[in-house]
């Protein structure tokens, strides 16, 4: 994910349209290999689709089994069964609270940090950016044990704000990196005008830069939200009481309790839990011109 790093908004975000097939001599061998390649592609597409198809069909099948099959008697019974306050509604709301708080916090902190990094020649700017880049690569799974022990000492285990602060901190490196590259794309002349008119750095950030890079900030926020939404390990370790657990953890408990019998309900729950992420991905990718390419920063 860190490769998204240097995508400048509006510039590198769109991939050029696919090149049309080279209009060379249409030799039969070439056409045959073209058919072969398409056939291979179709096989790969089917292989990727089949496991997911089970999820969609099983959710609609009250008598779902573990194998892919068309429902005999399709219906929404599975959704009705899991749509109770304790099973899905409260966990999904918990997820929303956790992820939204973490995203807002991340975007605010990242914007404040990115501004001086983008605008001033800081003595410690480069080392700081290198450290940030280094931190995006560290395996977060590895810090969960020491984090738990730290949280236990600070009485932060099983607190929502502790979990939010940790989620925000861990998404900050990539967020600062992204926000800085978005900010680099905002021309500095506008601020210079504001400075001439006597605005402070903070004022010009708030009333000149922030409005201009609102789309960028939203992208960073959505990105943080999606990552936090799918995170299972962090809340699994840091939160304990039933009424605070987000959907990522309760769906695991559901799997443990009913996963071996109520396949249809597990599938329905999975879809409910997946839906927000899919919607957000769709929004962002439409926004960025159809290619929310995480690899935008890579130069070939």
């Amino acid at each position: 994910m860190a490769a998204a790093a240097s995508t400048a908004p509006g510039t590198g975000a769109t991939t050029p349209p696919a090149r049309p097939p080279a209009p060379t001599v249409a030799s039969p061998r070439r056409r045959a290999s073209g058919v072969l390649v398409t056939a291979v592609l179709v096989v790969v597409a089917v292989a990727f689709a089949v496991p997911l198809l089970w999820l969609l069909l099983a959710a609609l099948d009250p008598g779902a089994t573990l194998q892919l099959s068309l429902p005999d008697d399709p219906g929404l019974e599975n959704f009705a069964a899991v749509l109770t306050v304790g099973t899905t509604v409260r966990p999904l709301l918990n997820s929303l609270v956790l992820c939204l708080s973490a995203s807002v916090l991340t975007v605010l902190a990242a914007t404040l940090a990115a501004y001086p990094l983008s605008r001033y020649q800081l003595r410690y700017g480069r080392p700081f950016l290198y450290t940030i880049l280094f931190a995006t690569g560290l395996p977060l799974t590895a810090v969960m044990v020491p984090v738990y022990s730290l949280f236990a000492r600070a009485d932060l285990v099983d607190t929502r704000y502790g979990t939010v602060l940790f989620l925000a901190a861990t998404s900050l490196p990539i967020a600062i990196w992204l926000t800085k590259s978005f900010m680099d794309g905002v021309p500095v002349q506008l601020e210079e005008a504001a400075w001439t008119d006597g605005a402070s750095a903070m004022q010009s950030l708030r009333s000149v830069v922030a409005p201009l890079m609102l789309p960028g900030m939203l992208v960073v926020g959505i990105f943080t939200f999606i990552t936090a939404w799918g995170n299972f390990f962090v809340p699994f370790v840091l939160l304990l009481s039933e009424d605070k657990l987000p959907a990522a953890v309760t769906i695991y408990q559901f799997f443990g309790q009913y996963g071996a019998a109520a396949y249809g309900q597990l599938a329905a729950y999975s879809l409910l839990y997946t839906l927000p992420v899919v919607v957000l991905y769709a929004v962002v990718s439409r926004w960025l011109g159809g290619s929310f390419t995480l690899g935008g920063g890579v130069k070939g």
Binding site: F48, L52, L55, S270, Y273
Partner: peptide
């Protein structure tokens, strides 16, 4: 389908 597999949360991928 390739992107769909990527977008789905990790735990759902594990169930699938």
């Amino acid at each position: 389908p390739v992107m769909a597999a990527y977008v789905v949360p990790e735990i759902v991928a594990a169930f699938v």
